[in-house]
Each structure stands twice: as structure tokens, then as C-alpha cells.
Amino acid sequence: MPPIGEIIRNSQIWKSVFRHPMPVDRRNRIVVMLTNFFLHLHPVSIQKQGIALSYTWCMGGVTFFLFLVETVTGVLLMFYYRPTLEWAFHDILSLRDDTSLGILREIHRWGAHAMVITVWLHMYRVFLTGSYKPPREFNWVVGVILLLLTLLLSFTGYLLPWDQLAIWAITVGSNMARATPFLGHEGPGAQLLQLDGVKMITDGSDARFGLLGARFVGEETLNRFYVLHCVAIPLAVSLLLAIHFWRVRKDGGISGPM
């Protein structure tokens, strides 16, 4: 009888999924890159310098990996968490005290911190290698938006445990919006926006109100941040990541000396 591995690899199911033998020879190592959906992000061959850890630090890749970890652990956390004043804190408590495999929240939180750090390091390396220079200018811009979204992801998530740490950090952070020029009710120029002597920008209609959905961090804010954190921003990040990776390829692969 042939070895079990061979039986599996010769089965119709295996062949229907992979359509080529194991990538052990040159031909099949090329074929695997071309036919596998996940691997086709990559080129078939690449300059040695472009994969040197000492060059890229693999930081973009690490950031992407952390994003995936956050997505998976985030979905699992959503199973246990209800974004209402009544339940939010309570659900986090029971997640800590009664749930088996109780490191879900830890992985999610430390992964988020780590992602903020690695995205900075990635930007740092892209800058230090001058990789934003033509033809990669636009991908740098996409990257800056990704950086901003990463911070916003982390910021919106910070509120969800609904403990003292959470609401006061978000209060401090969002208080600034009240001073937005023209659009914050304590911002310079806001008084100029008047209609027939009625102020258009008040604490019930300014930028901070738009962010919080209320005059202070409350139930509406929790709901708003929950939706932003779990749906809107991840979707935007995913789209931008697709563009980011596509552009890395289209701009000629990882940068290197001309």
C-alpha cells in the first residue's frame, strides 16, 4: 500500500483543490504561486534583497498578520459581548472570570498595541529606505491612511470594555473635537457660523457630538464606536490593504537600488 500522504495527494478531492503536485521542483514551485489564491499576492520570484529580513524587517507582513489575528479574536469576542450600558462591562467581567480559554481578550488587546507599534516601525523602515520615492509615492499615501485607520481602530476599541479606563481615555481624546475650528462649539470661528443670530454650532451639533452621538461619552457613543470598531473601519482597512498590496506589486515589487 502507498503511504497515506500519497493516497491523499492522489485523491480527487486534493487534486480538485490544488490542481498540481507538491511544490518540490522548480516547475511546481512556480505553479503553486500562480494558482493559489492566497499566494498569488506574491510574485513568483523575487530579488533576494527584497526578502532580506534586515531590509524590510518583515514589518508590513507582521502588521498584516496582527490585523488577521485581531479579526479572528475580534469575531470571537463579539460572541460574548453586547454593546449596551447594561451589559458591556458585565460581559467583559464574565469573559475574564467564567470563560474557558480566558486569554481571548488579552490576545486581542496586546495584539492591538503591537499592531500600532509595528505599523510605526513599518513606516519607519519605508522612510529609512527611501521607499516612498517614485514610483511608490501613492502607496505611501495609502499607507498613511492605513496608519490613521489603525490608530482609530485601536481608539474605538478602547471604549468597549466600558470601565473607568475606557470612558475617561475616550473622553479626554474626544474632548479635543469640541475645539475644532469652525466645527466645534468651543473652536475658533464657530461663532461666525450663525443664521439670523442663531448659532449653528452648539454642543448639540458640533464635531464632538457627531463623534460621540451625544454631549458626553454615553450609550450612543458606545453603539457608534462599536459599529465603527467592528464593521466600518475593518472594512475600510481591508479595502485599503488590498490596494496597498496590489500597488506594491504594480510599483515594481519591494524597493531596491535601481
Binding site: M33, K48, G61, P257
Partner: peptide, 24 residues
Amino acid sequence: EPLEALDQEKVLVWPDLVYIEMIC
């Protein structure tokens, strides 16, 4: 030339890069 220019030789992404990513 800068050191990076010495490593211009092309290698296959499978296994050279895919394995690095896996280990990472």
C-alpha cells in the same frame, strides 16, 4: 554600490519567502 545592490539575484518565492512568512 550599496550592499542591497549585491543581492539582486532572483529567488523563488516558494520556498524562500513563504517559509520566512510561515516561521514569522
